[in-house]
Design a protein around this nucleic acid. Sequence first.
RNA 1: GCUGGAAUCGUGUAGUGGCAAUCACGGGAGACUGUAAAUCUCCUGCCUUUCGGCUUCGUAGGUUCGAGUCCUACUUCCAGCA
Length: 399
Amino acid sequence: MVKKDFSFEILSAPGDKRFARVGRITTPHGIINTPAFIPVGTAATVKAQTVEMMRENGAQAILSNAYHLYLQPGHSLVEKAGGLAAFMNWNGPTFTDSGGFQVLSLGSGFKKVISMQSDEATVAVKSTRHAFVDDDGVNFKSHRDGSMHRFTPEVSMQIQHSLGADICFSFDELTSLADPYAYQVESLARTHAWADRSVAEFRRLQEKDSDRPYQALFGVLQGAHYEDLRRQTAKKLGDMDFDGFGIGGAIEKDKLGEIIGWVNEELPANKPKHLLGISEPNDIFAAIEMGVDTFDCVSPTRVGRNGSAYTLDGRYNIKSAKYFEDFGPLDPDCNCYTCKNYSRAYINHLFKAKEILAAILVSYHNEHFVIKLVDDIRNSLSDNTFDALKKTWLERYYR
RNA sequence: GCUGGAAUCGUGUAGUGGCAAUCACGGGAGACUGUAAAUCUCCUGCCUUUCGGCUUCGUAGGUUCGAGUCCUACUUCCAGCA
């Protein structure tokens, strides 16, 4: 008998919002107070950060990727080490992504900008794709060594089962905004079939290893920006044996809230909703308002590593020459470790000198910034000041 | 002092008689949303919003229809020998 030590409670919901709520996800490795930002640690590490830094930052969980871990020789060690959380010395709640995103990023989207504006989504770049989809699964050419691998829903579930994260995702096919409606329909049917197979294989493995900590399985919703497809997939997956849901797909920025609204009208309210790969502040506000409980995104570390820092007045490039002699902190309104201890001039120097500490310090600040933003929004939902926070915050940030 | 070599963009270089300015670095600006990302894109002699125009291969001469390239002298630097 599988012991289900996983739960989601809705603690409060402001009366004037249809879907927004404050909640608590309880996993075998700890609690996640929602809404929450979940930093991404693709290869069992948040790039340029230690787990101790992440804990100090306020991170409640970390999301890794089945595809990347599977390609590493160290993959087989994760299970021996006692699971992902123990292996990376995080010991808190973890998520693993299914590898579904790589169907796009290494497939038709290979070396292309995966734009969130439909009119830019057709940007074509000469490339050789590394992922090939068929109805049964996907053939991947490893980005590490070029060797061929095959992912099916069963393979993804087996990997995620062995990694032992608290929350796993069904194997899906992410489409791009450039794909025509007919392809979206075809692809969605495939994602549905894969969802069925993901549940069957995941629950089978769970029964087999019933002494292990419970792993929740979230079903991933596709359907691009089409209301009929989004509602269809929400109804279909909403009736299945999922512990929560991941809202995925290339999503047109302007339609983000609307799309989340459609699926939330169809999905069971008492299960957690995760929005995959989103962390721009306006998207976060829009998504939480429409009932999203958790987010993950690479943006804080990626842009941080590349010299871009979040502040309440917007994002800026610390590598710019105008910060050469600026001894103020990265973000004057921030109390994080980086901002308390290091100057813009120093960080500018570190980037110029190609020193790795630059990436470490800015990644730390950016993770802190986004985690704190979502924490602040959570608090604003509790004391019914969400609308005021949203207005003043976004006005200042995008001014 | 002698012998040999070298001098091209901020730096190092490519260019061996036919529209000078290749590549790298450095410099500037920007991008990044389930991470092929400590990555990528654009600019980097001058003038011009653009179209385009102009200037430049150490210096001064020479040969040639034509010279960064060949010749002479000079300057500076490098190496070897004294």
